[in-house]
Simulated assay, not measured.
Amino acid sequence: MNLHPYVVTLGTAGGPRFWGAGAQQGHRCGISTAVVVGDAVYLVDCGRASASQFAAAGLNPKQLRGIFITHLHSDHTVDLPGFLLFGWMMAGREDNPVKVIGPGDRGMLPAINPNASGPVSPQFPDAPTAGTVKMVEHLFRAYSTDITDRMLDSLRPSPYTVFQPEDIQVPVETGFHPNDNPTPDDVEPFVIYRDDLVTVTATLVAHPPIAPAFAFRFETAAGSVTISGDTAPCDNLVRLATDTDLLLHEAIDMDWAAAAYSDVSAATREATLEHHRKSHTTPEQAGQIATAAGAHRLALHHLVPGNANPEVWAQAGRHYDGPLQIPQDLDHLSFARTPSPAAHRI
């Protein structure tokens, strides 16, 4: 078996938007990355159109071993129903179900943004912060007519025989608390999945108010890839990505963000900009993180806006001397092992 590992950038845009006119109009789907090792495929996040992109990339659902969710924002999960319901048609998975691994229930409400002018309540007080296991249940319930029809009329097995959801258990010793300590310092990467081809480790990253939010590292015999998820600059991510062969990191254009919210109330605009500042990373900061980690290659994805001029993202090269890529959707990026570059810390 050829184990040369690579990723396929199924979708490279971030944010819960349909990106309109611009240099990249129509060329960037929602964030999703396929990690390919030999004949096995592992999926990280399920952004808009990722199920269709999975097929367009020539990948077969029968190759899929795991779906890994960095956090539960809609732009990372909106196509999960497509994988669950269409992938349910895979035969012969009863003894080898696809793991669906992601954050557990937050356990408590986040604080209300101080820009609020009145009371704010959750839309669904009975389950306001559902984790991965409960989200999959909610999705299956939402499609109960479809599932019942196919089980009773077509004699399909339960979709739970094909997909096995799991909530990531954050180690107690990290000191994690969703409100008081969502991104503890000095988190040691911890294993969340292992098979004969990969070991997947995770760490907590800074994406408030979402908690927990994770980054993942896939380690193989032939190389490693680290996928940041959504995060502000974070020492935990540097630790996870140390000496990684490929770092896939999110990036946002803050100049775009400052001008993008003229059609909402002043309170919503300020709250949204505050979120971007404390929860995301500029291209220059991504370059600094790659240098600090000694990453052998850096690629930017989860690009916000999804239709920016490529020159915006090239700014990462101001602080990173290694190979820098700004991939398009469906690009193949190798993460085969390369010699370690000289690294310096920020």
Rank of each mutant, 00 (worst) to 15 (best):
S52H: 05
V78S: 08
D75E: 10
K99W: 12
A40F: 10
Q53S: 12
W88R: 11
V78W: 09
R65W: 10
R48L: 15
G87T: 11
L84W: 09
A34Y: 01
Y42N: 10
H76E: 06
V35K: 02
T70D: 03
G82C: 02
A56P: 03
Y42D: 09
G82F: 03
L84E: 13
K62E: 11
T33D: 00
G58Q: 08
A13C: 11
L84R: 07
L84I: 14
L59Y: 01
D95C: 01
L85C: 01
T12V: 15
Q24T: 11
R93G: 01
V37K: 14
W19F: 05
V36Y: 07
N96Y: 06
G104T: 12
V35Q: 02
T33S: 02
D75K: 03
M89G: 07
F54A: 04
L72G: 03
H71C: 09
A51K: 10
L59S: 02
T9D: 08
V35W: 02
L43A: 13
G87N: 14
S74H: 07
D95L: 13
A21D: 14
G92D: 13
H27D: 09
V44I: 14
V44E: 00
P61L: 12
L72S: 02
V37C: 14
W19S: 02
L59H: 04
C46D: 06
A34S: 01
P103I: 10
G47T: 07
G20C: 07
T70R: 08
A49K: 04
P97K: 12
I101C: 03
A51C: 12
I31W: 00
G102E: 08
A55H: 04
G38P: 05
L10V: 03
F68E: 00
G11Y: 15
R17A: 05
A57W: 14
L43Q: 13
L43I: 14
I69W: 07
Q53A: 12
F54T: 04
C46I: 13
N60T: 04
G102S: 11
Q25E: 05
A13K: 01
R65E: 09
G92M: 03
K99F: 13
S52D: 08
D75M: 04
A56E: 15
A91K: 07
Q53Y: 05
K62R: 12
H76T: 07
G92C: 07
G26M: 09
V36Q: 08
P97T: 04
I67T: 07
A21R: 15
Q63E: 10
G92F: 07
Y42K: 14
F68Q: 00
D75V: 08
W88G: 14
L43E: 08
H76Y: 15
V41F: 02
V78L: 13
I101M: 01
A40G: 11
A13M: 05
G87Y: 14
G47A: 01
C46K: 05
F54G: 00
V44Y: 00
P97Q: 12
K62M: 03
G26R: 04
P61F: 15
